[in-house]
Design a protein around this nucleic acid. Structure first.
Lengths: 355, 355
DNA sequence: CTGAAAGCGCTTACAG
DNA sequence: CTGAAAGCGCTTACAG
């Protein structure tokens, strides 16, 4: 059962020798360039297949020189939306790893509440010559224009976090939102008995990305409808990001609904946790929310939040770069669609999450 | 906030030029070899630091030639212990990835019920010249002898899956067993009400690795003792691996204990699931167990098993190779101790697990 | 359509 | 203690 390897790697020179041609010709065949007779090409291909030739990636990368460069364009992190910080951390890990291989990566951050900052970034991107760009699309229309321009300039594109179907040239890496909603419902069913009152809470300034949240809600409801446990479900919106603005609104909703469980549809769950920490006289409902932010983990660790559902935004960022690396250097057809794992964190396993 | 990079990488030649020495001398400093005057060394180090020199890994790997080779020695997979198959899959992924970089990796499989097969493998390993070996230690005593011999031959060693403290030269990658037990208890508390009857089940032929299982049980009990919910906990051993042998024993235990929940301490949870699938007239207890094996997932998917706890054996194997790669090529001090994440799988998120 | 030669940025003998 | 030269396995002009 042991794997065996020859001491000496079978290389481009060996192919050339067997085919009675120069290594330049072999290179042409390997990289699907023209200017090779069909006969020679066929012969070389045969030799390649017969000997299971594997190119040495170090040599390849070294000889093409470090002319690969990728752009990344994602929303800027704000104090209350630390989510994008996680994504950026994955990007930074990729930057470090791939710079050792001579790949240049530049990050462009835009304000997700100001489309002009997005437009400005896309213009900046065209100032330099990039081979590919990783995009977290928020402004659908402007993204479409940008992608069209990339296509005409032969720049590869890949989406992360949310998808615009069929638009990017290389595919999508991110969560399956509907399934995260179903999972939240699944966990809900373990936390509360039949006929409980459930409160779904959308907490986000402006609620611009409502469709994004709604997909999760659809999944949540579909699961519970199917269970038929007599749950009463209420959806409420709180269009703020900061604790001071959210708290009074939350208090009102709480008094009105008296929920047994609150499902927070995004990473603002930490604010809800803080609220019940500060109002310990209130009967605390069970709480489920999203994302491995420090503030969220704090309220998981002290038992106020029951479950955090996480989709590795850091991994999304890193994977996008990794796929580009493979696409350009290993000439592998990259992804088409890659759903992130959906992780469940509790008070007992969060310490071991992602390092 | 954009990351910026110079077009032209600062390389060994630039250092040599600035220091008025040859690139050979720079290389001596970079790789901490001797035969360089203190003065020259200091000057070169200063230049390296001042310019934040990063070696080109492709060039490095290409010039050292493909003379790196690693051995992996783990238990053979048997029909009822598919766990090691997962580990092997991670290893194979690493083999594929690193062979592109000219690294040779050989896998040696031993029978975990026969120490002689382990000894034979270690002898085989010394027939070739390996730079490092990845070990899943089962036979503690023989492993210690093997490690001692590796040390005298200057072969680096790294443990996966279970540790023998302080023995390996590079460290350990694997689960924190106590915490996995605590997590199982945490999930238990969501599944059953106060004063429930809990059955802890050790299912393993020979029960050789009892200490391994006992650590999980300790964690499980410690969590529940602390909760003080009036649970009644019983531990039972079933010293078999095959369904036909396990089933009658399980039936006896079930009739005697009538548990509300069964916690299976290893990957044999699928057998327990199969049992309740085949005996649908019995009142099915909640079931928690370990590992992302197909048979286990099947019973998760049809609702018989509530939770699977997973520790990415595949990642352990892959990471071990990745760390060796970094250790030898990037000259990074590798790990010392790396705990795997502890994942929770339910019927609603298993589809997205690990690809 | 094909080949000889230079070069990518390192490491490795070898010569002094 | 130091340096000149060859080589790792590819790709890239350039010449024919």
């Amino acid at each position: 059962m042991s794997e065996q390897y020859e001491k000496k790697k079978f290389g481009i020179k060996d192919i050339a020798r067997l085919a009675n041609v120069s290594i330049a010709t072999v290179d042409r065949v390997l990289n699907n360039r023209k200017d090779v007779s069909d006969k020679t090409r066929a012969k070389i291909k045969e030799i390649i297949a017969a000997n299971n030739y594997q190119p040495n990636l170090y040599a390849r990368a070294l000889s093409v020189k470090n002319n690969l460069s990728f752009a990344v364009i994602i929303p800027r992190t704000s104090s209350q939306t630390g989510y994008w910080q996680l994504c950026l951390e994955g990007i930074n890990k990729g930057i470090q790893e791939f710079s050792s291989f001579g790949i240049n990566i530049q990050v462009f951050l835009y304000d997700q509440e100001d489309v002009n900052t997005f437009i400005k970034s896309t213009e900046d991107i065209f100032m330099s010559k990039f081979n590919a760009v990783v995009i977290a699309p928020i402004f659908t229309e402007k993204t479409e224009e940008f992608i069209a321009e990339c296509k005409s300039r032969n720049i590869q594109t890949i989406f992360i976090n949310s998808d615009v179907k069929g638009l990017s040239s290389l595919g999508y890496i991110g969560p399956d939102l509907y399934s995260t909603g179903r999972l939240a419902a699944n966990l809900t069913s373990y936390l509360v008995p039949n006929n409980s009152k459930l409160l779904i809470l959308n907490v986000a300034k402006g609620l611009n990305n409502y469709k994004y949240l709604e997909t999760k809600i659809d999944g949540y409801k579909s699961y519970l409808d199917n269970l038929d446990r007599g749950y009463e479900i209420v959806v409420k919106d709180i269009p703020f990001n900061d604790y001071d603005e959210v708290a009074p609104e939350l208090y009102r909703v709480y008094e009105q609904e008296k929920p047994d469980l609150i499902f927070v549809t995004n990473s603002r769950v930490g604010i809800i946790g803080e609220f019940f920490f500060n109002h310990s006289s209130l009967k605390k409902p069970h709480i489920i929310g999203f994302d491995f932010l420090q503030v969220n983990v704090d309220y998981l660790a002290n038992g106020i939040v029951d479950f955090l559902i996480c989709q590795r935004p850091d991994k999304q960022g890193y994977l996008a770069l990794h796929y580009l690396y493979k696409y350009f250097l290993l000439k592998e057809v990259a992804i088409d669609h890659k759903s992130m794992p959906i992780d469940i964190l509790t008070i007992e396993n969060y310490l071991f999450y992602e390092n």
